[in-house]
């Protein structure tokens, strides 16, 4: 795997109609860091992922991955550079097998993705790499199953697996554990923990336990602005954060 990437975001802005989804967001991540992004609904977290991944263009601001400014790159070019995202609602190739899904992601990163004149089952190198990638996300046993037929938890695994299989050095994970039960969630946390240090991760997540367990640092996004950044302990103690976001939970719980 290639070395994890550092990320530097400066002054990112994005408006939708009259609403500023991102209102001057600046953030710097060290290579290999797992950085969680939390905040109330509608705060702009998914927009942040959209803009970073290239699904949307920022109105202003810079995005630098290692030393490369990528704000003007189309999505597929960012992926080639090592920036890949996963989806809050699983986005898979439903009609193809789990292995074929991963094989597509691996095919994409080959320097000449269409050089092959062989059918998939004749391309043993590709199949091997795909199987390895499946092992990484714990889906090797389900390789032949049609992706659309997977259980919900497995779909989340595959969704993550697709992003990983691109050879990502910076992962943008949009609520990867959405809708998972306790057992599946625990497995997922273990998966992410195993990735720590090998890949830089931006993790958008609602579940506070997970966030505090996994994150090296946490940023809090409220109304398109980052109101606090720090280690989990620092965030836990941060007065404004407690008030705006955790406060009500502390009172109620």
């Amino acid at each position: 795997m290639s070395p994890p990437a550092g990320l530097c975001v400066d002054g990112l802005r994005k408006r939708f109609g009259g609403v500023a989804a991102l209102d001057g967001v600046s953030l710097a991540l060290d290579a290999g860091e797992l950085h969680a992004l939390i905040g109330p609904n509608g705060a702009g977290k998914t927009t942040f992922i959209q803009v970073l991944s290239g699904a949307d263009r920022a109105d202003a601001g810079s995005i630098v991955v290692d030393a490369t400014e990528i704000a003007a790159f189309p999505m597929h070019r960012r992926v080639r550079l090592g920036v890949a995202r996963s989806y809050q609602i699983s986005s898979l190739f439903a009609n193809f097998s789990v292995l074929e899904n991963i094989a597509l992601a691996i095919q994409a990163r080959s320097p000449r993705p269409f050089a092959a004149w062989e059918p998939l089952n004749a391309d043993t190198a590709l199949v091997d790499r795909a199987t390895d990638a499946l092992n990484d996300v714990g889906l090797a046993a389900r390789a032949e199953i049609r992706a659309g037929d997977l259980a919900h938890g497995e779909k989340r695994q595959l969704d993550l697996g697709l992003a990983l299989a691109t050879g990502a050095r910076l992962l943008l994970l949009d609520e990867p554990m959405a809708g998972l039960g306790a057992a599946d969630a625990a497995k997922f946390v273990a998966l992410l923990a195993a990735l720590k240090g090998r890949v830089t991760i931006v993790l958008v997540e609602h579940d506070m336990d997970t966030v505090f367990r996994l994150a090296d640092r946490i940023s809090v996004l409220v109304y398109g602005r980052i109101v606090a950044t720090g280690t989990p302990e620092e965030i836990r103690r941060h007065a404004e954060v407690r008030r705006a976001y955790l406060g009500e939970e502390a009172e109620g719980g």
Partner: peptide, 26 residues
């Protein structure tokens, strides 16, 4: 159609957004 390019265009048919998100110049 049985080879790389064929897989790719059928991938586009199945989920174009994800094809781009895994690095294909769709």
């Amino acid at each position: 159609l049985n080879a790389g390019m064929g897989r790719a265009i059928q991938g586009i048919r199945d989920n174009e957004t994800r094809m781009e998100a895994i690095g294909f110049a769709t």
